[in-house]
Amino acid sequence: MSNDILNDLAYRKPITLRVYFKNIYDAIRTTLKGMSITIKYVYGVKPVTLEYPEVREELPANSRSRLFNDVENCISCMQCSAACPVDCIYISAVRREKEAPALKTKNGQAIRLDLTQYTIDTALCCYCGLCTTVCPTECLTHTQDYEFSQYTLDNMKYDYLDPQVRTWRNRLIKN
């Protein structure tokens, strides 16, 4: 078996002296040509790399980064959790009592259910944006926030009813 393979290498024919020197000449000529292009890059092209911790990039306006739910406008319709392809949104809600004062969302829809839990497992989330497009009150949005690494997986679960998480609103939502 091994002999057959060695015979296959026979396509490397012996070369003449002329071809030998032409090969050397070609190699030097084309390499110099490449080097001249590289030197142009050294002196002619401005650096494009952002030096990250010092320079922070502003993401485009419709960038799909960390999810934020403005729970005050949420009507618990569960459309986001139904649309989610990886099932990472956990919602539970109870019927709002009749005696309680009537609440309305920003765009005038009556809130008939009280949220008791609204959690998104950001570690599972695939940032596809399908949940934000079905949201009728536009309370669930993608933000431009991209620095949210955590030490444990559990910390990636965001409970948007948590008062601390709610304070993000001022920072994330403009208007």
């Binding site: 070609d26 084309t30 040509k33 490449g34």
Partner: peptide, 18 residues
């Protein structure tokens, strides 16, 4: 430019032809 940098380079040709 890229083609003359890589594709026409003798060393690249020798590595890839046949």
């Amino acid at each position: 430019k890229y083609h003359s940098l890589v594709g026409e380079n003798k060393i690249f040709i020798e590595r890839t032809r046949s």
